[in-house]
């Protein structure tokens, strides 16, 4: 009984450590400044203002798509909530529906615009 507990505890610690390590290195990439991310954008060939508008529209369309694909699995037509409520609801749904970080960001952006 004791040995089994040790094995399971070790297993849990190992996996938690792996996931935490994986996440911290991912976080370093995600937390890059916005300017660096803009440089990586696929719309770099367009003039800055036009590129920004195109980028906003692309994000809105993608956010709406993610909203329907994820939230629509359980909920009916879209709610409109105040922006600060959206931040809480998405955190709740990230846990409840295991949304990915990317889906959550796009959906929040779509719902708060």
């Amino acid at each position: 009984m004791t040995s089994r507990r040790v094995i399971l505890s070790s297993l849990l610690a190992l996996v938690t450590g792996t996931l935490l390590l994986a996440g911290s290195s991912a976080g370093q990439q995600v937390d890059k400044p916005a300017s660096a991310q803009t440089t990586n954008s696929t719309i770099h060939s367009a003039p800055p203002a036009a590129a920004s508008a195109q980028g906003d529209e692309a994000l809105r369309v993608e956010g709406e798509k993610r909203f329907h694909a994820n939230c629509g699995r359980c909920h009916q037509s879209p709610h409109k909530f105040p922006p600060r409520m959206v931040m809480t609801i998405e955190r709740h749904m990230r846990v409840r529906a295991t949304l990915t970080d990317e889906d959550m960001r796009l959906i929040v952006r779509y719902l708060t615009q």
Partner: peptide
């Protein structure tokens, strides 16, 4: 189709 998106700087409110 998967651009990095910066979350708006809003504080979440209890619900």
């Amino acid at each position: 189709n998967s651009p990095d998106v910066i979350l708006p700087e809003l504080s979440a409110v209890p619900i």
